[in-house]
Computed example of a mutant assay.
Amino acid sequence: MANPWTGEVALTIDGERRLLKLTLGALAELEQELETVSLVDLVQRFEGGVYSSSDVLALIVAGLRGGGANVRRDDLLRAEIEGGPMAGARAAAELLARAFMVPGDA
């Protein structure tokens, strides 16, 4: 089970339940991959509903890597996410929110 207090989010990919987490290292990789000045820009895109499928994929890959999986973007291009693209987007948004959640806010 995912522990929201540690920033974990669960997502079923190719029939396997996986735990995603944005560690500092995963966040740094994410920032570099998305070529964004700051992650605040990404948070604002999600809050405004103007994120791209590339944003969602990058967040899922970063979360998997932060959760200890040795994956690359290419590994997920044909992956089946239980619940479809919207479930992936919800998980990505939740992952991003939990990474910046202040203890006691939830």
Rank of each mutant, 00 (worst) to 15 (best):
A91M: 02
L59F: 11
L96T: 07
V102D: 08
A28Q: 09
R90F: 14
A26E: 00
R90W: 13
P85A: 15
R45M: 09
L77C: 12
V50E: 06
L64Q: 09
R78T: 14
D105K: 11
T12K: 10
G7W: 04
K21N: 09
L27C: 06
E82N: 10
A97I: 10
G66R: 00
R17W: 07
M86Q: 14
E82K: 11
A28T: 07
D75M: 00
M1D: 14
R73S: 13
M86W: 11
G63R: 01
E80W: 06
A89C: 09
E35G: 11
A89F: 03
R98V: 12
L96S: 08
R17V: 11
R17I: 04
G15V: 02
T6N: 10
E47C: 08
G15Y: 04
A26T: 00
S38Y: 02
G68A: 08
A28L: 05
V37I: 14
L11R: 02
L19W: 06
L57P: 03
A10S: 11
I13N: 00
G15A: 02
I81F: 04
L76D: 01
S53K: 15
G15Q: 03
V102N: 10
G84F: 12
E33S: 07
G25L: 01
A62G: 07
M86V: 14
M1C: 14
